[in-house]
Amino acid sequence: MSVVLQPAARQLFNSYRADVARANGVESAKETFAVLPAPTQKIIQAYQQQADFLKLINIWPVDNAKGEKIALSIGTTIAGNTNTNLNPRQPTAVGSLDLVDEYDCTQTNYDVAMKWLLLNAWRHFPDFKKKLQEMVIRAIALDKLCIGFNGLFRAPTSDRAANPLLQDVKKGWLQKIREKAPEQHYKGEDVGGGVFKTLIGAAHEFKTVDALVEFGIEEYIAEQHRESGLVAICGRGILSDKYLPLLNIIQDPTEQIAARIIYANKQLGTLPAMYVPKFPAKTILITTPDNLSIYIQNGTFNRSIVDQPEWDRAVDFQSINEDYVVEDYTKCLLIENIELDD
């Protein structure tokens, strides 16, 4: 059944579209335009407000589609002495350039459909335009996290039905570690048939997930990074497995308070545990959030907002050239296939 966009909703939606056009110095947002730098920065900040983890990572503008990583971390010590009567002082570069793993910004489409049925329902809200903007921003922000943690490859045409976690949109941070730094990837032991498991339990090398995390820090993280604010990023299941036994018992009030305090200050080993939406199950990533970046190529953020009456909707077409980058592989460890063995 066809849906008609109500006059009040049409007026509000047209005003919203005119605001977008005005902010970017174009006559109409119905035709594709390049988003200006100032609105781009505001939109990036809006992404970060809608997904807290995006506040902790880097979102860097770059001029070229391909190039050397910014590589913020210092990969070595820098202090030293030089007898300048014999030799010149030799400064150490802050952030060694990784020529093996260059960034490569390719187009990602973030196209959001807005059904007229929804716009009609929202026409009664005094903050119609704000709600519409936040809906678009939140959808894109969460998709950026989903790609970063689940992206495996870039297909010419992605298939959301076959890859609901956006595995075929772009290579994310975890896949970059698997491919570019396999020495920083712990996938467990081969239990047969090419199946790997990182088993936790009394009968195994790692009795607890805390021991696994401490092993990972000592054996895989470069020494100069071990005191640099590492966190253990994980899915909710890892924390449930650890803390459910603590919470799932009858306790007196004092013990209940103590248990809640312990749970509120969740840790894995000696590291703060950080649950992030869209992070895969049975997986832990040890790193600092600022070791993860999204590079966006300047001048490639394009947008148009058009009606599609044949679908009873409007669509906000957005695209940008971007890449997901791990700045320093020696500052991270990806642990996968974690299973508790009772």
Rank of each mutant, 00 (worst) to 15 (best):
W122Y: 11
R123C: 09
K115Y: 08
V94Q: 11
E68I: 11
L117T: 04
K129E: 15
H124Y: 11
R123D: 08
L97E: 10
L99E: 15
D127C: 03
D104I: 14
D101K: 06
K130I: 10
S96T: 14
I74Q: 08
T92A: 12
A93P: 01
L86N: 06
T106F: 07
K129P: 01
T77R: 06
G75N: 01
G75V: 09
V94R: 07
G75A: 12
Y103S: 08
D104A: 15
G75K: 00
A113Q: 08
H124R: 08
M114G: 03
E68K: 04
W122C: 06
K69G: 05
N87K: 05
A113K: 08
V112A: 09
W122T: 14
N120F: 08
G75L: 05
P91H: 14
L99S: 15
Y110S: 15
P88L: 12
S96I: 15
H124T: 12
A71G: 04
V112K: 05
L119A: 09
H124G: 11
K115L: 13
G80Y: 03
V94T: 15
L119Q: 02
R123M: 10
A121D: 06
K115D: 11
I74H: 07
T92Q: 12
K69E: 00
T108M: 11
R89I: 09
D127A: 09
E102Q: 15
P88D: 12
K130P: 01
L86E: 00
D104M: 10
P91R: 14
A71W: 00
A93D: 07
N109E: 12
I70M: 05
L117K: 09
L118G: 02
D98Y: 02
L72G: 07
I74Y: 03
R89E: 02
S96P: 03
R89Y: 03
N81S: 15
C105R: 05
L86Q: 05
C105M: 09
S73N: 06
L86F: 10
K130Q: 13
N87D: 03
P91S: 13
Q90K: 05
A121E: 02
C105Y: 02
I70G: 02
Q90H: 04
T77I: 11
F125K: 09
G80E: 06
T84F: 00
V112Y: 10
V100F: 12
K115H: 10
N85R: 02
V100C: 11
I70V: 14
Q90N: 04
I78V: 14
E68A: 09
L119T: 08
T108F: 05
K69M: 02
T82H: 04
Q90R: 06
K115P: 06
I78R: 09
